[in-house]
Design a protein around this nucleic acid. Structure first.
Lengths: 210, 210
DNA sequence: ACTATATACTGAAGAATGCAGTAGAGTCAA
DNA sequence: TTGACTCTACTGCATTCTTCAGTATATAGT
């Protein structure tokens, strides 16, 4: 049975359309540049180009460098056709996995300190990503984009990321302030403050904007 | 071999700590309330409580209603202990899967119309979610929270969601405006506008804030 | 010389998804 | 009243994806 083209297959195929890559380069590039749109494991990123070869969408050869060898993958004409057909497939809905928020939702089983800890970790992760992108933009200014003719796309995407990370950081600050007023994680329920917030949200207004 | 407790197992265990549920209720409740923090398939949500039973963290019995039967799951004392131990495990970093943005990154293989289409779908998904939460908040005001003493947690989480969805919607508007000025998806590269944006982002300023 | 880090992968087990299938119960309309 | 449709209430199977351990060479720093 011929394997199916998944979104991850198209992602790798799209990278191959830019230039030939080795498996190792592909895992690194995909993890660096696609991480915030389509995060995939290193293992999968080694497997996908092999699948593309069996489908006839890529060719591969071994490059020898002393006693080391590495697999180079190159897109085929068939592969370019398949990539063009990507647009005919349905786009998957967005998916946000945030364990820190799951822990917030069930914070009443733990202490305030544990909840604050979860928020701290969340913030640290977001700040890391945030800083990485700001630095990447700095490198673009110095002509560091690997495919200069594609800079407009990377930058529009980066705008999304920076904007989202800023908004998340603002929320974390807000959440910390709220929690600081809590005596415990439990049984606060629909108190005055919560009711005020609920009323705002029900009117589609964010307490962070006001 | 005893199965491992995954984050999803803890999520289901946390739900069970609130009250006993049937498998069917659990799938529905988890998909409605955990969807934006921990999105999981219906299939998994039917499997997890069974796993909890084999681990001794839940008990189950069949409830008969005519010719129909359904499985009811109830947390055990062991289960409550296990849930308390959740805080000792590391929180997984956040993960954002957004195929629409992947398509944006590689939009130069397609047309402007296709890129706009991807943004439209993205927007439609986000707006659906956004509206669902605003309505949920309205129901909370009418006393509709299933566990009133936990309202403060749900509302703080809802603040995150509404704020994030608003921020994404603003970005989509922004992106649409940018794209409207593009003659094609290709080879725009580091033009004047892109350079302006890059400069802003490199200074950690969002073009959406100004 | 030793250690750490980067390069360059693969196999196998387990987690999670998607899809099809089964089947009873209630609703609405032709 | 029969048929169509939706909701309830799941299960099995194939496939996808992640995690982890393992293998082995190359290179830079102390």
């Amino acid at each position: 049975m011929a394997p199916r083209m998944t979104t991850s297959s198209y992602a790798v195929l799209a990278l191959l359309s830019l230039k030939p890559w080795t498996g190792y380069e592909l895992t690194n590039q995909a993890q660096r540049s696609l991480r915030y749109a389509w995060p995939k494991s290193e293992r999968l990123l080694y497997s996908e180009p092999k699948k593309l070869v069996t489908l006839g969408y890529a060719t591969t050869y071994k490059e020898e460098a002393g006693k080391r060898s590495r697999n180079v993958y190159e897109i085929t004409d068939e592969g370019r056709k398949a990539l063009a057909g990507w647009t005919e497939t349905k786009t998957q809905p967005p998916r946000f996995e945030i364990e820190a928020l799951l822990r917030l939702l069930f914070a009443d089983h733990g202490t305030l300190e544990e909840l604050q800890g979860a928020l701290d970790e969340f913030e640290a992760d977001i700040e890391d990503h945030h800083q990485a992108i700001v630095e990447l933009m700095g490198s673009y200014l110095d002509g560091g984009h690997p495919f200069p003719e594609r800079t407009h796309l990377s930058v529009l995407f980066a705008t999304f990321q920076i904007d989202m990370f800023k908004s998340i950081e603002r929320w974390i600050e807000f959440a910390r302030n709220e929690i600081d007023d809590w005596p415990t994680t439990k049984d606060l329920g629909m108190n005055e403050r919560t009711e005020d917030l609920t009323r705002l949200l029900a009117q589609d207004e964010s307490p962070l904007d006001t």
